[in-house]
Design a protein around this nucleic acid. Structure first.
Lengths: 116, 116
DNA sequence: TTATGAGGTATCCGTCCGGTAACCGGAGAA
DNA sequence: TTCTCCGGTTACCGGACGGATACCTCATAA
């Protein structure tokens, strides 16, 4: 009883599917969290560390550099003492927020249900 | 001698953040793709491999096992010869689709813009 | 007889992540 | 003066994760 191969139901994903395209920006540990907490005003490195308690300084610093390279965040060094650094979303970064919002919404529902 | 800050003895309250809560289900390489291609009808292992050409068998089988453990997909062995296995989304899995849809939508916009 | 296909597992190896520690230059404390 | 702290970053190390390839079982097809 041979199985017939069912055709792919989905539009040709090939030369870089939209999911992959967007995940290239959202991928990497803690990336959605970083973008999420940058929504709204700019935020300093140590503020982000407080926002995301379980991220290590190394990973946060790496993530911010990656996101800067990809054009998702901007980095501005403030002439304070000691110098502090402010990060903010670019227009591209703000476009990613709705996707993270959708994830957060689902997370809220999951939590509410687990409480019951 | 000042009092040293005591380290919290219990692991930090993990599921505080809705984003983390939901990312626990979506995290891991290729996870959004797998859920995306399972939306709609059930799909077999080799069909998923064709849907997601760049995933390796090891990672796909690992992802499917993880998702089954988390209650996102079901696994059904069909009594064919050779036996085939069908995977499908659970109700929980279907709840995750809107978030992936949002990511896909943004990916479409990014691609369209890049073409220009 | 060999090949093929389904649904994986075994193995190797490179990259990523997390934790710790150190760094730097200036400001305040001892 | 010397100590220490502070914000941001980097170097080092060990472990987990992901990619590539090979292999396995069973049964039909060429």
């Amino acid at each position: 009883m041979p199985l017939k191969r069912r055709k792919s139901r989905v539009p040709p994903p090939m030369p870089a599917c939209p999911l992959t395209e967007c995940m290239a920006l959202l991928g990497g540990a803690w990336t959605p969290n970083v973008i999420w907490y940058l929504n709204g005003e700019a935020r300093r490195f140590s503020e982000l560390r407080a926002d995301i308690p379980r991220i290590s300084a190394k990973v946060l610093s790496g993530r911010l550099r990656d996101l800067e390279d990809k054009g998702v965040v901007t980095r501005k060094v403030m002439a304070t003492s000691p110098p502090s650094v402010e990060y903010a979303l670019t227009a591209l970064g703000r476009e990613l927020v709705p996707a993270i919002q959708a994830i957060v919404d689902i997370g809220h529902r999951l939590k509410r249900r687990k409480a019951a």
